[in-house]
Amino acid sequence: MKITIRVNGVGYTRDVEPRLLLSDFLRHEIGLTGTHVGCEHGVCGACTILWDGEPARSCLAFAVQAEGHEISTVEGLAPGPGKLNPLQQAFQDAHGLQCGYCTPGMLMTLTAFLAENPHPDEAQIREALSGNLCRCTGYQHIVDAVLRVAAA
């Protein structure tokens, strides 16, 4: 069926099966491969996107359901080509990524979290990140990155 989904402010029209997951729509239909796919059952957090501004698992929704909603992915964070937003810059400065696989999901979760709570303490940051797994176990540097943003 033909659907139009707005991602990062741009409308994309594609003909898809209802069973196509939103994560696969983003990666395979419109080529936004920044959204990563890990477990495909909602546990790892790699595929986290913003759904009308709220963090959600793109592997637990069908693309057809996203019509009429605003989807935001990691590709929409940077202010311009070659630039990083403050959260992305803090990840780089604090060595908040190792292999980088979990990073897009971390960034999207934190984008929504910081919009609601711009100056969190460490405990709140750890709670916010509890739904995103990092197999490099680089959590301390990720928390450090968020603390930098929170202090700014």
Binding site: G45, P55, A56, L60
Partner: peptide, 9 residues
């Protein structure tokens, strides 16, 4: 209940 990302939906 799970995580914020799950509670969104």
């Amino acid at each position: 209940v799970a995580h914020p990302q799950i509670r969104t939906r």
